[in-house]
């Protein structure tokens, strides 16, 4: 197990290591080795090269855009989609490159719809564009199973619903809005866990962050509102609180517990502000937030110690 900077600081403080010995420690434990350098340079050159070439192509078509025939416009984007997907199924292509190519094709699907809407002026609402885009890339998401593509897909689903709520639903209830976003986020997390897609932990951290964000904002907005969905959002909050807390304890990862702490501080502060906005209440909020931070960190530290034993 490689040492961290904190470990090296402890060693330095409690030893008589000279600068050369410390440098050797840093070289062996912290800095990248030769292989990491080669991989880094190689990937950086590839990504920069692709990004600049693609950007150059986009700028070229932007320059000529107005003069192009509508079939040429659509044909260019369709060709990009076909070319990148065909190239990705070649066996001699690196796995990561395949996934990036399919992700690129997925983004081009959105561009295709945007250009289609621009040319034909169909009068369709924005959410219909995003809905079609989302549906068309589902199979690729399952086939490629790439975290970045999945995140794009999750973002598209949220965006589609958000636009649908704004444009098609005749309700002005922010609590309902966040209630449904919370359910969407929860479904994603459950599906990813249940079907055991091998995902890195950072992927789930992002999803949980989004989930807690939606439910916390929804709960905070529910205080003092006359929405019919106060009870559902409150139930959601408590259920998610329990499951995120349990997940953090099972995974022995303090990140989830820290998210819960921040969520509680926001929600309870909103609740208190809804009761009153006089000096006494602000004082109470100030004390509560500080006490929650101090108490929360103290408790989490003790928990980490118990995990390490």
């Amino acid at each position: 197990m490689k040492l961290s900077r904190q470990d090296i600081n402890i060693i330095v403080k409690n030893s008589n290591l000279n600068s050369q010995q410390i440098q050797d420690l840093i070289n062996d434990e912290i800095k990248p080795d030769q292989n990491s350098w080669k991989v880094f340079i190689s990937r950086a050159l590839l990504l920069l090269g692709l990004a600049f070439v693609v950007a150059g192509i986009f700028f070229f078509f932007a320059y000529n855009w107005d003069g192009l025939h509508k079939f040429v416009k659509l044909g260019i984007i369709a060709s990009l989609i076909v070319a990148s997907t065909l190239f990705s199924i070649r066996s001699n292509v690196n796995d990561l490159v395949k996934k990036i190519l399919v992700s690129f094709a997925a983004l081009m699907v959105g561009a295709f719809f945007a250009v289609f809407g621009q040319i034909y002026q169909t009068g369709a609402s924005a959410y219909q564009l995003f809905l079609a885009w989302t549906i068309l890339i589902v199979i690729w998401c399952f086939a490629v199973d790439f975290e970045i593509l999945w995140l794009i897909f999750v973002a598209l689903v949220h965006l589609t619903f958000g636009l649908y709520y704004e444009q098609a639903v005749d309700k002005n209830d922010p609590v309902l809005f966040f209630c449904i976003h919370t359910i969407i986020s929860s479904v994603f997390i459950i599906v990813f866990y249940k079907y055991k897609f091998s995902k890195p932990e950072w992927f789930f951290k992002i999803l949980f962050f989004v989930l807690l964000g939606f439910v916390s904002v929804g709960a905070a907005l529910s205080f003092g509102s006359n929405s019919k969905f106060i009870i559902p959002i409150s139930l959601e909050y408590f259920i998610i609180f329990y499951f995120v807390g349990r997940h953090g304890i099972v995974k022995k990862d303090i990140y989830y517990l820290a998210l819960l702490l921040i969520s509680v501080q926001i929600v309870v502060s909103s609740f208190l502000l809804n009761i009153s906005t006089d000096v006494g209440m602000f004082f109470a909020i100030c004390i509560f937030v500080l006490a929650a931070s101090i108490g929360g960190i103290y408790s989490m530290k003790k928990l980490i110690k118990s995990w390490n034993e």
Binding site: A51, F52, V53, A55, G56, I57, F59, F60, Y63
Partner: peptide, 8 residues
């Protein structure tokens, strides 16, 4: 676009 393409 030419600049970017050549750089890429």
């Amino acid at each position: 676009s030419i600049l970017m393409f050549i750089t890429g």
